[in-house]
Design a protein around this nucleic acid. Sequence first.
DNA 1: AGCACA
Length: 277
Amino acid sequence: MALPQPYDPYFVHLPPEYGASDRNGVNTLFVSGLPDDVKAREIHNLFRRRPGFDSCQLKYTGRGNQVVAFATFVNHPSAIAALHSLNGVKFDPQTGSTLHIELARSNSTRKHKPGSGPYVVIDRRTKTAADAHDNSSEDGDSESDELSAPNKPGSGNKDDLAISKSDETTIDADNTVPAENEQTDKTVNGAQPCSTLFIANLGPNCTEDELKQVLSQYPGFNSLKIRARGGMPVAFADYEEIEQATEAMNALQDSTLPSSDRGGMHLEYARSKMRKP
DNA sequence: AGCACA
C-alpha cells in the first residue's frame, strides 16, 4: 500500500529499455531469526507462494549456530510485498522465534538450472565463534576449509552447541556479505516485468475460451488474445497489475491444458503491454 | 524458442 510509485492511469508503461531493474533497488531479502535446525526446504516453502518469488538460499553463517537465508524476487516491489507479509511472523511456535526480514545489501540473482534444486545451501559452520580472526573477504564459496573439524549438516551431528544463545538476539546486517554468489545484477531471465503475459507451447487446438477460463481464475485478469503465427498458437494475457500477472505466471507455469498435446504451457512477461481493448 | 495489437 505504501509503494513509492504513484499510479497514474494515463501514464504510459515504460518500454523495456527503461526497465530500471538495475537501479530500482534490491530484489533480495535477508532473513534472520531462524532456528538453527532450519532446513532449506522450509525457507523455500515459506517464500514459494509469494508473488514474484524466484529462488532462495540458506546459509549457515558459522557464527554460533545462527542461520540466515536470502530470498530473491523478480523485482523490488514483490520483494517488498513479501517482506511486509512475512516479517515478524512466528516461524517456530515451540521457541516462539519470529522472522526478521529486511532487504539484503545486494541482489543475489541466480538462475536455477533444471539440474540444480530450487534452493541452495551454503555451509560455513566449520569454524566455531572462537575463531574470530578469519579473513572474511578472501574466503570464497568453496568448502575447502580443513581447518578444524568439518561438520556436515544432515549427518546427524548437531552437538556443536558449545556456544549458548547469549549472542545478540537478532542478527545484525553486518555479516550479510553474500558476495560469494553475487553477480553484477542483471535482469531476471532477461525479461522485464510486465502486466501482460506471453504464453507459448500451447497445443495446436488450444482455444481462446479454454485459456481464458484458466487465466481468469487469477485476480486482475483483463483480456486474452491468441495469435497463430504460422504454426503454433501463442497468446497474450493482460492483467491489471504486474504483481497479478506475476502471480498468474508463477501459478500456471508449465501447467498442461486439456487440449495440449505437448508439455505444459510456458509463460513469460510480454515485451510490451497489451493495448487497451 | 516462438512476442501482437496500435
